[in-house]
């Protein structure tokens, strides 16, 4: 080998370049630092409101007014949460929220599995037409169907009743039903038919095959659909406010009228210092209203994040 000075210099240069920029363009230290700092920067912007909420909800009035107290409250002030808990009527509201979200989510998942299976496993004349129709329902704004639904429900005395959510969900017309049908369609298409064909030869009926063979295989899709459905129903306030009226309520709906409820519960003027609705109390209410969702998310986040991968929305 020829060890001339020029070559050595060149080698060092290449080594330095490799170390900084990397060989394939993505393992150099410069690029890595850039990627990490971008991710951390954007990540910070993402959770900034959450940190803000958490920090301010623990602040007493003195802390809120004191410009020196920035992110970390001087004491863990729980009074905000106590008041917000009362204003939201937390526990009964939570139970009601679960009632009006879990049932429609279950119904929606069940019917999406059923319909998705029908699309995935059979060939029939109107298949393409019907499938396009299913996808079309995704772009119809709920406002267009809202008014007739409202009129019919009021005729049938279903307003203020969970049926207003449950009935459409049971028939595949719930929130974003098209997406869930698509998820199950893609899922069933991706798994081989051999087992079902064997069962069919052995004389099992289609319905039995669906329940004993297809459903047990579809557990991941079922979990993903249920979780997404649950979260979307939970966060739905526009339709819920119209259909449920005063009869049923959810945590987001209670949060929507937080200020009004607060005034009613702690009328101003009685005790000036204690009964003023401040940012701390409002944010404590916000934190309380999303706390159950956060819990669900941190336990099941793997399903949410990997769900989009697995659901096969991106095609094969």
């Amino acid at each position: 080998m020829n060890h001339s000075m020029v070559k050595r210099g060149k080698n060092a240069n290449i080594k330095l370049k490799r170390w900084l920029v990397g060989v394939k363009g993505n393992d150099g230290i410069l690029i890595r630092t850039l990627i990490y700092s971008l991710l951390i920067g954007i990540g910070f912007v993402y959770i900034y409101p959450v940190i803000f909420m958490a920090s301010f909800s623990f602040k007493s009035l003195e802390d809120l007014l004191n410009p020196l107290v920035n992110w970390i409250p001087s004491t863990l002030y729980m009074e905000n949460f106590k008041q917000a808990y009362q204003v939201l009527n937390f526990f009964p509201t939570l139970l009601e929220t679960l009632y009006v979200t879990i049932l429609p989510a279950l119904a929606q998942t069940a019917v999406a599995a059923f319909v998705g299976y029908g699309f995935a496993r059979f060939t029939f004349r109107l298949k393409n037409f019907l499938f396009i129709l299913v996808m079309m329902t995704f772009i119809i704004p709920p406002q267009v169907t809202l008014i007739p639904r409202y009129l019919v429900y009021s005729e049938l005395n279903l307003l203020g009743n969970i049926q207003a959510f449950l009935l459409p969900a049971t028939f595949g017309q719930g929130l974003n039903s098209a997406i869930f049908i698509l998820i199950f369609y893609q899922f069933f298409r991706a798994i081989p038919k051999a087992l079902e064909e064997a069962a069919l030869l052995d004389g099992a009926g289609h319905l039995r095959i669906f329940f004993t063979i297809a459903i047990p295989m579809a557990v991941p899709a079922i979990i993903i659909s249920f979780l997404f459905s649950f979260v979307w129903y939970w966060n739905e306030t526009y339709l819920a406010a119209i259909f449920f009226g005063d009869q049923l309520t959810t945590l987001p709906l209670e949060l929507q009228k937080f200020a009004a409820s607060y005034q009613k519960m702690f009328p101003a003027g009685m005790d000036e210092s204690a009964s003023k609705l401040n940012e701390g109390i409002r944010l404590a209410g916000t934190v309380l209203s999303i706390l159950p969702l956060l819990l669900v998310y941190f336990i099941t986040q793997k399903w949410f994040v990997e769900g989009v991968d697995r659901s096969g929305i991106t095609g094969e």
Binding site: G118, F122, T123, Q173, L201
Partner: peptide, 27 residues
């Protein structure tokens, strides 16, 4: 044989078709 009974597809699709007519098309 598996594909022989396209009529069964409509059995699986029935809930959606009924729902579509009642809760989407009619409204």
């Amino acid at each position: 044989q598996f594909k022989m009974k396209p009529s069964f597809a409509y059995f699986f699709l029935a809930p959606w078709i009924i729902g579509f007519l009642a809760f989407t098309a009619f409204p």
